[in-house]
């Protein structure tokens, strides 16, 4: 069939076709947006033109100190996420390696996973007031239980033969965990962290929209009060861009830290 070249069933597409396709879908998106706003099909107040949104973004950063809001948001995500990892990585690995430890913590952790983190916002505000603490706590709660479960599952999946090999080489329990199980699962831990960091951004915005005077989310809520839709959309774009940048950073970290996973 002649269509097979670009449209084969389960045939991988070439690099060029992928780039053109990816660029194309965004071109269509912005094309529709530009057309709709310039042709007056949409209310300019509710849907500002993309060029206006980008101009506003520029203005926010260089004229109105938006960068400090962005830095606050980043530090909240990174701070809370680091705390969550500091607990989840050792605990998840130990739970995956020792069924006795899993038996203690798994019933607790899996129950918490079904409690939506935002439902804690009212009580967190009462406990911690309106400072940084409730935001960090929300992110921490939102991320840690999933992270523990993911890391535990990955740890369980470390092949039994690796553990048995280490045992027959004379390793004790702690050596097996530190020198075999942990390095074996580490690439998957980094992948799990990458996935959960995306979730942390979600909770950050929730925290900042509900109860904050600083940060990207707070800026967006302020903008809403003054009907500045362009600023709201700027906020969305910046959050998206930051998410993407952090995801790329994790991808780079993965590549850099685990060269042995690359073939050839």
């Amino acid at each position: 069939m002649a269509t097979n070249r670009f449209f084969g069933l389960r045939k991988p597409v070439g690099r060029r076709q992928r780039l053109v396709s990816a660029f194309g879908i965004w071109a269509v998106f912005f094309g529709v947006w530009i057309f709709a706003s310039s042709a007056g099909l949409v209310n300019d107040l509710l849907v500002p033109a993309p060029q206006k949104v980008f101009a506003t973004t520029w203005d926010l950063f260089w004229e109105r100190g938006f960068a400090s809001d962005v830095m606050i948001s980043i530090s909240r995500v990174v701070g809370a996420f680091a705390m969550a990892c500091a607990v989840a990585v050792p605990l998840g690995v130990l739970m995956g390696a020792f069924p006795a430890i899993e038996a203690v913590f798994a019933p607790f952790v899996s129950a918490w996973r079904y409690l939506p983190a935002p439902s804690f916002i009212p009580i967190l505000l009462m406990w911690f007031g309106t400072g940084e603490a409730p935001k960090l706590a929300l992110l921490f709660i939102g991320v840690i239980f999933f992270l523990i479960t993911l890391i535990m599952d990955h740890t369980k999946n470390v092949r039994e033969e690796l553990v048995e090999t280490a045992l027959t080489l004379g390793a004790g329990r702690s050596t097996v965990v530190m020198k075999v199980v942990f390095p074996a699962v580490l690439p998957n831990i980094v992948t799990a962290m990458r996935q959960m960091l995306a979730m942390a951004w979600t909770y950050l915005v929730i925290a900042e929209i509900v109860a904050s005077t600083t940060g990207i989310g707070a800026m967006m809520m302020r903008a809403r009060r003054f009907l500045k839709t362009d600023e709201i959309l700027s906020g969305i774009i910046v959050i998206g861009a930051l998410g993407l940048i952090f995801d790329l950073l994790f991808a780079l970290l993965h590549r850099w830290a685990f060269p042995y996973l690359r073939k050839s």
Binding site: R159, L162, E164, G170, T175, P183, A184, F258, Y260
Partner: peptide
């Protein structure tokens, strides 16, 4: 010492470090 049918090389270590592993621990 035991050698298994499944590959048990420690992928994060070079061949040299793999062979050294038991002696090191």
């Amino acid at each position: 010492g035991m050698v298994f049918q499944a590959y048990t090389s420690f992928d994060w270590l070079s061949v040299r470090k793999n062979v050294e592993f038991g002696m090191k621990i």
